[in-house]
């Protein structure tokens, strides 16, 4: 049993997610990612259960593991109670810990997600709030969202929210002492370490590619590059 497989096998989701795959392919038949990307969760299961270190390392460095949407439709269908989606989560965690994620275009996107969502959680107490859904970055949200963005306090008040105010209610300000607790939890449970790891490897990659990267936020060239790059090979 090799080293990478051992590390995967320390992840509770890997333990729960892989009970022995018989390669029936039902997961692939139901998978929304397999319909869109060149992606086959059956092959992922087969590769990891082979315990072949070279193949697992190639997987950790590949585009493939970033195609799953974690809808977990596979969990319902597998006749052996495997969950390829959980296996993917373990693979992605290990890929980030080892810095392999920057080898793939889709993996490099983890930097954008860390900067956009990760930093927002610690700053606001929310994964998503109106401030981070800018019409420029989200043209698909359409003109109604553009109108909402320009009038957020008035519209939130009309909706009975407590927008950016103290106390209970929708979109309230999360108190500084609560954010301090969130920060503390992120520290003791390893999320800060994960964020630092994503930053370290992304900065190394940005330097290697000669692309400007800042210490925080989304206003830098590397962010926009990984946020928008699509080499067009993912669906074929």
């Amino acid at each position: 049993m090799g080293k990478l497989y051992d590390r995967l096998n320390q992840d509770i989701r890997f333990i729960e997610g892989l009970n022995g795959c018989m390669n029936c392919g039902v997961c692939t038949a139901i998978c929304p990612a397999a319909e869109f990307y060149h992606y086959d969760p059956r092959v992922i299961c087969d590769t990891v259960q082979s315990k072949d270190e070279k193949l697992i390392e190639a997987l950790l460095r590949s585009e493939t593991i970033w195609y799953c949407g974690e809808c977990m439709s596979c969990k319902t269908r597998c006749p052996r109670n495997n969950t390829p989606g959980f296996i993917i989560m373990a693979l992605r965690k290990l890929s980030q810990e080892l810095g392999y994620f920057t080898d793939s275009e889709k993996g490099r996107q983890q930097f954008a997600i860390k900067r956009a969502i990760g930093e927002n959680i610690l700053r606001s107490g929310y994964c998503v709030n109106p401030d981070i859904v800018s019409p420029q970055m989200h043209p698909e949200q359409g003109p109604v969202w553009d109108w909402i963005s320009r009038n957020t306090p008035e519209i939130m008040e009309k909706m009975g929210s407590n927008y950016k105010q103290e106390g209970v209610g929708g979109m309230r300000t999360i108190a500084p002492e609560v954010l301090a607790e969130l920060n503390q939890i992120f520290e003791v449970t390893g999320c800060k370490t994960m964020f630092e790891t994503i930053e370290k490897h992304s900065k190394h990659k940005a330097d290697e590619l000669g692309i400007e990267i800042s210490d925080e936020g989304i206003g830098n060239e590397y962010f926009m590059t990984v946020f928008t790059d699509n080499n067009g090979t993912h669906n074929s």
Binding site: Q110, I113, G118, I121, G125, C127, G169, A175, F186, C191
Partner: peptide
């Protein structure tokens, strides 16, 4: 409702930047 509740971090978790333990 308690004003001190926050995100569950679900979107961070399912984009794999937030560990399970967090």
């Amino acid at each position: 409702e308690d004003a001190r509740h926050t995100t569950c971090t679900g979107i961070g978790y399912h984009t794999d930047i937030v560990p399970l333990e967090t």
